[in-house]
Amino acid sequence: MESAVKQKVFAADLPSIERRLAEIEQLDRQHALEKGMLLKHVRDYDLTHGQWLRWLETVGIGERTAQRYIQAHEQFGNTTHASGLSVSALFDLIQLPPDINRSMFVSSPQPIPSTGERKLVTDMSRDEVREVVRAAREAQGLAKRKQPRTATVKPANGFSDVWGALDSLIAALTPFEKETIESLPLSLTRRVMSLAPQTRTIVLDVASKLSSIVFTDNIEEIMRDAGQGVSPHLIASKYVVKPDAQSLNGIIISPYEILGLNFGENDTAVRRRYRDLSKKVHPDVGGSELLFKLVNKAYEAHSSGRWFA
């Protein structure tokens, strides 16, 4: 797989990469790493000329999914055994602590905490992969150790294992809650679904009002306030603020000033505003090339999270 991913020769122009991505979509799981390589090439060499996010829409790949494919390639592209991993397993494994040797991890049997059985990652179920990844993160203090479940937060339908019953739990949510929970990072899904129903409803309402990055960074305080019954509006208002201006493409300005929004606002609202503005300032309809570029840079700053580093 190393030679197939690292040394593969391909046409570096955008149309060729688009055709190859369409072909990869129909192939088996081993091509997930190649997809990450292609996406990384397009992004790193700016083949879209500042239109990275818009181009992702044309090839049917979400920005977050593209980032995961790229991370999978960067972490496992030189790992021979990774070619047999499913896309879902790769996306879970990129959350391993950074100092763990990826090649050794996937090529050696790993202990599954709940059963004590040792398995190769390629032979594990998705729940087992997640369990092993979480154990590795807990061991290095990157995740809090799971506390025994109490009766107050045990799902009402009787399931004791949230991961094992996750699909059933999500199916019982309202359409609004389901859309919100599916937009959260995988690392937060279990925690939110483990909350008591009333608290979970408040947390999901807050998540719908904030950007995913702001919500993730403040999840502990948000859950604490939700558990105390604080209204979603009051909780969200703490994080929707105007940020200090910084350099954006050489101009000292906040990306949210360009978009006419506040820092922390919901991703959907930001995306809607970006689309409206980009149509109005597009050079093809008499707009300004500079403004069009700034609008795209502002949206990329929001979506990538670089602004918050």
Rank of each mutant, 00 (worst) to 15 (best):
M1T: 10
Q7M: 06
K8T: 03
F10M: 06
F10W: 05
A11N: 11
A12K: 04
D13C: 02
P15W: 07
I17G: 12
E18F: 01
R20P: 04
L21A: 00
I24K: 02
E25R: 09
Q26D: 14
L27G: 05
Q30F: 08
H31P: 00
A32D: 08
E34I: 00
E34N: 00
M37H: 02
Q51F: 07
R54F: 03
L56F: 06
T58W: 12
V59I: 13
V59P: 09
I61C: 09
Q67G: 11
I70D: 02
A72D: 13
T79K: 06
A82N: 03
S83N: 01
G84L: 11
S86E: 13
S88V: 11
L93N: 03
L96I: 03
L96H: 03
S103K: 13
V106M: 11
V106H: 07
P111R: 09
I112N: 12
S114F: 09
T115I: 09
K119Y: 11
M124R: 00
M124P: 00
E128Y: 05
E128S: 07
E131C: 06
V132Y: 09
V133W: 02
A135F: 10
A136K: 14
R137A: 06
A143N: 02
R145F: 12
R145K: 15
R145T: 13
K146A: 15
P148N: 02
N157Q: 09
G158K: 02
S160C: 09
W163P: 06
G164T: 08
G164K: 07
S168E: 15
I170A: 03
F176S: 05
K178L: 15
K178N: 11
E179N: 15
R190V: 13
T199M: 15
T201L: 15
I202P: 01
V203D: 00
D205P: 07
V214S: 04
V214F: 03
T216Q: 11
D217N: 06
E220K: 11
E221N: 05
I222W: 08
D225G: 02
L234K: 12
K238I: 07
D244P: 05
A245K: 13
S247T: 01
I253F: 12
P255G: 00
G260Q: 10
F263M: 12
Y274D: 03
L277G: 00
K280F: 07
H282G: 05
L291S: 06
F292I: 00
L294I: 06
S303A: 10
S304L: 05
A309I: 10
A309Q: 13
